Simulated assay, not measured.
Amino acid sequence: MIDTLPLLFLDVDGPLIPFGASRQELPHGYPTYSSGRRQPRGAGTHPLISRIDPAHGPRLTALPCTLVWATTWMSDANDCIAPWLGLPELPVVNWPEPSDEDETGRVHWKTRILLDWAAGRPFAWVDDEITDADRTWVAAHRPGRTLLHHVDARKGLMDADFAALDQWLRTCVPAGDNR
């Protein structure tokens, strides 16, 4: 069966692992969590994994979409983060080798690759590095439905982000699909 649900491209650093808040914003530092799940060898060695709220796992799986890792963690996201969140192994966008080009003020290096990967399918992209340049480029090069959802890296995914994603994704679910 062909999956007709929209894609949700998910970045890790920023949306799932918050970072960059000042001491004034978080005088006691970021909260840490325990997932209560058995971790594969090496997963607990990442110093920031405990910043990921394991409650995000059920919230992500409740969204009417096909989740795809769109992160520089690549397959490590399936090894470390998916078990932490209780997610199954997810598809992974494989990135090309980095370029020495300066991307300042231009389209993010992930943008073109995600459009190609989606192959015309509706998608939402959740990342802390999305800019107006990305939105403008996507609007000019993509006739299909897209949502480029910027997340504040200092806070990570919040209730309002999940609500916005759920609302948008539900507008893309084919009629008669009750997911």
Results as ranks from 00 to 15, higher is better:
Met1Val: 13
Met1Leu: 12
Met1Ser: 15
Ile2Leu: 14
Thr4Ala: 11
Leu8Tyr: 02
Leu8His: 04
Leu8Ser: 03
Leu8Gly: 04
Leu8Thr: 14
Phe9Asn: 00
Leu10Trp: 01
Val12Ser: 02
Val12Asn: 04
Gly14Cys: 09
Pro15Met: 01
Leu16Gly: 02
Pro18Thr: 06
Gly20Ser: 10
Glu25Pro: 08
Pro27Asp: 12
His28Trp: 09
Tyr33Thr: 05
Ser35Leu: 05
Arg37Thr: 06
Gln39Glu: 14
Ala43Gly: 11
Gly44Asn: 14
His46Pro: 08
Pro47Met: 00
Ser50Cys: 10
Ala55Leu: 12
Gly57Arg: 00
Arg59Leu: 14
Arg59Lys: 14
Arg59Phe: 02
Leu60Ser: 02
Leu60Lys: 00
Thr61Ser: 15
Pro64Ser: 05
Cys65Gly: 06
Ala70Glu: 03
Trp73Arg: 02
Ser75Pro: 03
Ser75Leu: 12
Ala77Thr: 02
Asn78Lys: 07
Asp79Gln: 13
Asp79Trp: 06
Cys80Met: 14
Trp84Ala: 01
Gly86Met: 05
Leu87Val: 09
Pro88Leu: 05
Pro91Trp: 01
Pro91Asn: 05
Val92Gly: 05
Val93Thr: 07
Asn94Ser: 14
Glu97Lys: 12
Ser99Glu: 12
Asp100Ala: 14
Arg106Tyr: 03
Lys110Pro: 04
Thr111Gly: 08
Arg112Gly: 11
Arg112Asn: 06
Ile113Gly: 00
Leu115Trp: 01
Leu115Asn: 06
Asp116Asn: 11
Trp117Phe: 15
Ala119His: 13
Arg121Tyr: 08
Pro122Thr: 07
Phe123Asn: 00
Phe123Glu: 00
Val126Glu: 00
Asp134Gly: 05
Asp134Ile: 07
Trp137His: 12
Trp137Asp: 01
Val138Pro: 03
Ala139Gly: 11
Ala140Met: 08
His141Thr: 09
Thr146Phe: 11
Leu148Ala: 02
His149Pro: 10
His150Thr: 11
His150Gly: 07
Val151Met: 07
Arg154Met: 07
Arg154Gln: 14
Met158Lys: 11
Met158Cys: 13
Asp159Ile: 04
Arg170Gly: 09
Ala175Asp: 15
Asn178Gln: 12
Arg179Trp: 07
